[in-house]
Amino acid sequence: MSNLSIFDIAGPIMVGPSSSHTAGACKIGQFARALFHDTPKKVTFYLHGSFGEVYKGHATDLALLAGVMKLKTSDPNIKNAFEIADQRHIQYKFIPKDLGEKYHPNTVEVILEDGKNKMSVIGSSIGGGMIEIVKIDEFDVYLQGSAGKHLSLVVCHQKNPKIMAELIKKINKLGIRIAETVESSFKDERLTVLSLEGRRITLPEVIDLEMNTEGVDFIRSLSKLQTQ
């Protein structure tokens, strides 16, 4: 039996019209932006299934773009997302595309670029504003975006077990426990998702870990998004 909050019922506070096609889409955009770690100069959205068919009517396009620009699901400015993106000189494109049968009908692939870096994030909106991130670049992952008990840290690193062991030691020293580790590999690289328990990890701590742990390409904290 699930342990629902009263505010799962009396909420979420959101901008309409649809929790799955608007609020969920916005959240996928936020995750993509957080994983990319920077404001992209160019974003391309490949809309799959129902997203591709009805995105205009449900303002899925506005919500996705708003999320990439860090707007909250409850921000009334979502409807002005195109104008805001133009002001910030962010190029955007929406292309309906069949990503394959294995994906949920409400799925989008987000390609973020800033001239130097490029990242691909695939996310699905599974209803009631809840989402899943299922792919980051070539790595299959499973990140949930609802108010859960755990907060995730996404680490991309070289395939050397020592690197992760050292990082986990450092995190434990901060007084944060690791509830779960999920790994996904591609070629020489590995992506590990750590579920944290206890207190919330701060941004300076994340940056410190990223800078001072050898063999780590990047660390992204999703804690703020997951409890929003």
Partner: peptide, 15 residues
Amino acid sequence: EQNASMGRIVAFPTA
């Protein structure tokens, strides 16, 4: 109507 025109609402219990 606010929900339909992208206003802010509470999905209580759903939109």
